[in-house]
Structures are given as C-alpha cells and as structure tokens.
Amino acid sequence: MGLHVVSPERSVTLIKGLSVLGFVASRPFGCTIAETAKDVEISRAAARRLLLTFCDMDILRQDQKWFLPTPKLAELAISPIVTEPFWEALRPPMKHVSEKTGEACSMSTLYGQDIVYVARAPSRRVLSVHLEVGSRLPAVHTSMGRVLLSNLVPERLTALINQTELPRRTRFSLSDRQVLLETLCGVASNGYAIVDQELEEDLISVAVPVFAPTGATLAALNFSSTPTRYPSKRLRDTIVPMLEAASKQITDVLRTNQDINSHAIKEIKK
C-alpha cells in the first residue's frame, strides 16, 4: 500500500493510522504486526503502537499474534453517502432523463483517481461499455470525472494530475497534463464537461455537478450516447439544460427529505 508524500501541514501519524485500519479491514481473518508494517511501509514498532491503540479503542481486537477488525470499525465508516439507499432515493430525476431520451443517465462520485458509479438509469440500447453501480473508470477520461476534478482545490488538483497516468485509450484521448489542466479550468468555468470518444471510440458523454444543500459538489450527473446521435452541439443545447434541471431536483430532494440519511444508516447497521 505505502504512504503518499504529504506536506508538513498534514498529520503523518493520522495517515499511518488510517492506512493501518484500511489494511486490517481488508484482512477480516486477522493480520500480524509484521504483515501490517510491511504493507503500510512503517516500522514494526510504529505498527505495534497503532494496532494496540486501536485495540484499546475497541476498533480492533487482538487474538494472540493476530489483530482483527471489530464491528466498531464498520460503525466508524457509517455515513449515508456510502449506502445504496442514499443514492437510490435520488434516482427518479435520472430515470426521467433516461426515459425521455432513451439514453443512459448515471451519477458518480470521486474516489482517488477514479470515479465510482453510485446510481444509474440504463439506456434502452446496448452499449459496448458495461457499467453498473460500483463500476470504476479513470476520472481524467470521463465527463463526470472532469466535473468532479474541476471542483478540487488547485493544490489538490495539480498534485492528483501529476500522479495520474494518462494512457491514450483512444486516438482522441488527452495525454498532455498541461492541456488537461487547461481543459479542467474550462469545465469549472462552463459548469459542464463533454468528453468525445476519449474513453472509447463512438462514445460521447456530458456531465454536470450535483450540489449538496451546503453548496459542496456531492457528485456528478452524466448522459452518454454516440456522437452520431448526439454531437457536442446537441449535447450543449438540449442535454446540458436537462441534466442541470435533474441536478437541481436532486439537490432539492436532499434539502427536503431528511429521511434519506436516517434510512441509509439503518440499512447499513442491519
């Protein structure tokens, strides 16, 4: 796993601790101090201190040389945003877009250098890209990814782009980091992103941000089709307003339906 290089303003100990929890969570049958130290790339002494501290907090438990996660570790991760009921309650506006156009409408959130699909209203047509909730795609080559990346603080965005590989998935894919950064600035200014055949040839998509009631960018909403059916101009003129309306409806649902959060937490605790 290893640790990322961080600025002096960050807490390295906290980063190490979270890395340790991530490793133990991936080893439900137990792991040792030596295994943890090797995976997280820290000393055995540091791994031992962190593992024992988490045991004192009942987040982990120790059985001989083995350290195992407890239910409390799962409780720490409970947030409505990680549950299916949270996103499923936001799907009706997406379904409306899909039914009106006959094309797929999806929503995703950013996870490192990827986007993760959290809700989807599929197309009536069969596309070559098979996607479902939980699917991951590289953020830099997707319209939703570019919307989400464009809303990162400049320092974080630059660091992420510098660490991201830019393979040419098609002959249209952006592979120059400076051009990509300039493109993302345009996305931030326009409020939407269009990606034309960069992920896969004969696939075009457009995305807009989905805002939380606080104004933070919660996710991105996307429409995908083929360039023949929906060239860029048609996407801008007809689909962007439709997605923006759906995005506003989703924000309104989040603002008014307080039951989403409580229902989601109940589901994850079952």
Rank of each mutant, 00 (worst) to 15 (best):
residue 121 A to M: 02
residue 124 R to T: 11
residue 124 R to H: 11
residue 124 R to P: 07
residue 124 R to S: 11
residue 126 V to D: 15
residue 126 V to G: 08
residue 127 L to V: 10
residue 128 S to G: 12
residue 128 S to V: 14
residue 129 V to R: 13
residue 129 V to A: 10
residue 130 H to Y: 10
residue 130 H to D: 12
residue 130 H to L: 13
residue 130 H to T: 11
residue 132 E to D: 14
residue 133 V to K: 08
residue 133 V to F: 02
residue 134 G to H: 05
residue 135 S to T: 07
residue 136 R to T: 10
residue 137 L to F: 10
residue 140 V to H: 09
residue 140 V to Y: 12
residue 141 H to P: 02
residue 142 T to P: 00
residue 144 M to F: 07
residue 144 M to C: 09
residue 146 R to C: 03
residue 147 V to M: 04
residue 149 L to W: 03
residue 150 S to L: 02
residue 150 S to E: 01
residue 150 S to H: 00
residue 151 N to K: 09
residue 152 L to Y: 01
residue 152 L to W: 02
residue 152 L to Q: 04
residue 153 V to Y: 11
residue 156 R to V: 13
residue 157 L to W: 05
residue 157 L to V: 07
residue 158 T to Q: 08
residue 158 T to F: 07
residue 163 Q to P: 04
residue 168 R to M: 05
residue 168 R to A: 12
residue 168 R to W: 02
residue 169 R to N: 07
residue 170 T to H: 07
residue 170 T to C: 04
residue 171 R to A: 13
residue 174 L to R: 11
residue 174 L to E: 08
residue 176 D to W: 01
residue 176 D to L: 03
residue 177 R to V: 01
residue 180 L to I: 04
residue 181 L to S: 00
residue 182 E to I: 02
residue 183 T to P: 03
residue 184 L to W: 01
residue 186 G to D: 07
residue 186 G to T: 11
residue 187 V to Q: 00
residue 188 A to M: 06
residue 188 A to S: 11
residue 190 N to P: 08
residue 190 N to I: 05
residue 194 I to S: 01
residue 194 I to C: 02
residue 195 V to P: 00
residue 195 V to F: 03
residue 195 V to A: 01
residue 197 Q to I: 10
residue 197 Q to A: 12
residue 201 E to G: 07
residue 202 D to R: 15
residue 203 L to T: 12
residue 203 L to C: 12
residue 204 I to V: 15
residue 204 I to K: 05
residue 205 S to K: 03
residue 205 S to E: 05
residue 206 V to Y: 03
residue 206 V to N: 02
residue 207 A to Y: 06
residue 208 V to C: 04
residue 209 P to W: 05
residue 210 V to Y: 02
residue 210 V to D: 01
residue 210 V to T: 02
residue 211 F to T: 09
residue 212 A to Y: 05
residue 212 A to I: 04
residue 215 G to D: 07
residue 218 L to P: 03
residue 218 L to K: 03
residue 219 A to E: 08
residue 220 A to W: 11
residue 221 L to V: 14
residue 221 L to D: 10
residue 223 F to C: 11
residue 224 S to W: 13
residue 226 T to S: 14
residue 226 T to F: 10
residue 227 P to Y: 10
residue 228 T to L: 13
residue 229 R to I: 08
residue 233 K to L: 15
residue 233 K to R: 14
residue 233 K to E: 15
residue 234 R to C: 08
residue 234 R to M: 14
residue 234 R to F: 11
residue 234 R to D: 12
residue 235 L to Y: 05
residue 235 L to F: 08
residue 238 T to A: 15
residue 238 T to E: 15
residue 239 I to N: 06
residue 239 I to K: 07
residue 239 I to F: 08
residue 241 P to I: 04
residue 243 L to E: 03
residue 243 L to W: 06
residue 243 L to K: 06
